[in-house]
């Protein structure tokens, strides 16, 4: 009982911490963190070359989106890991709670994946001038989004509860394995003409790193909080169903 109270408090704390940290991250990103200057040595007449594209404004205001985009992307990977982990735990124990946990983790992953896609797309549109480029990170991410969506398609298509749980667990594990493999293959077997990725890690100074870390911690807290709240809701639902069933007997 005590553990449950603790978890409730922890969730509440995570919501507060997430809200505060992401807000602080935002403020830092826009007001404090200096922009990464484009490498003007490559420039031809005032512009800069980034990702093989000529950028007109060397001071890139749109790069602020990275303080949102990168933390969200990292969080989505971390939560997706729990899909696989809980899937594995379910297969080992056949405990239904793990199936619910894996499902909720995948739901939260989907939220963060969609956020990553939207923010990433804004970036590519403004910096590369294109809505979409088949570039390793984008491709990998697109495949991962498909896998997460397909996870729910698979669940929806199986009626038997036990079987649905087993299939979803197996697919979750495979999907989690697939994401890094996609990244690896798009990196190591480059296609003929894709732009060089804009490297974020290249020349970040202390304040930029701090901003990223603050935003990342905030996103992780939020992810955890969303997960916990959804899980509590689902557990309550399951308990009500169980109670209803026992009343009918």
């Amino acid at each position: 009982m005590e553990l449950r109270v603790d978890k409730k408090r922890l969730t509440f704390a995570a919501v507060i911490a997430g809200a505060v940290l992401t807000t602080v991250g935002f403020v830092l990103a826009f007001l404090v963190a200096p922009p990464v200057l484009a490498d003007t040595t490559l420039a031809s007449g005032g512009g800069a070359m980034i990702g093989g594209e000529l950028i007109a404004n060397p001071v890139l205001f749109s790069q602020k989106i990275f303080y949102f985009h990168v933390p969200v992307a990292i969080t989505s990977f971390i939560i997706f890991f729990f899909t696989a982990l809980y899937g594995l735990r379910f297969l080992m124990t056949k405990d239904k709670a793990f199936d619910t946990k894996a499902r909720i983790a995948t739901e939260v992953t989907l939220v963060f994946v969609v956020l990553t896609m939207i923010t990433g797309d804004l970036w590519t549109r403004f910096e590369w001038g294109k809505w979409w480029v088949w570039e390793p990170r984008l491709t990998t991410y697109f495949i991962m989004m498909m896998l997460v969506i397909v996870y729910f398609v698979l669940r929806a298509s199986i009626e038997d509860e036990e079987r649905r749980a087993v299939y979803a667990a197996a697919f979750g594990i495979l999907a989690f394995l697939d994401a890094p493999l996609s990244f690896l293959i798009t990196r190591l077997v480059p296609s003929g003409n894709h732009p060089v990725v804009f490297k974020v890690g290249g020349g970040l100074d202390a304040i930029q790193v701090t901003t990223s870390v603050v935003a990342l911690l905030g996103m992780l807290c939020l992810g955890y909080a969303i997960y916990q709240m959804r899980f509590r809701e689902e557990r309550a639902k399951e308990r009500i169903e169980a109670l209803k069933a026992s009343l009918e007997d």
């Binding site: 495949i143 397909v150 697939d178």
Partner: peptide, 9 residues
């Protein structure tokens, strides 16, 4: 739908 994204790499 399972096959294509999973076989992508």
């Amino acid at each position: 739908v399972l096959f294509i994204p999973l076989m992508y790499p």
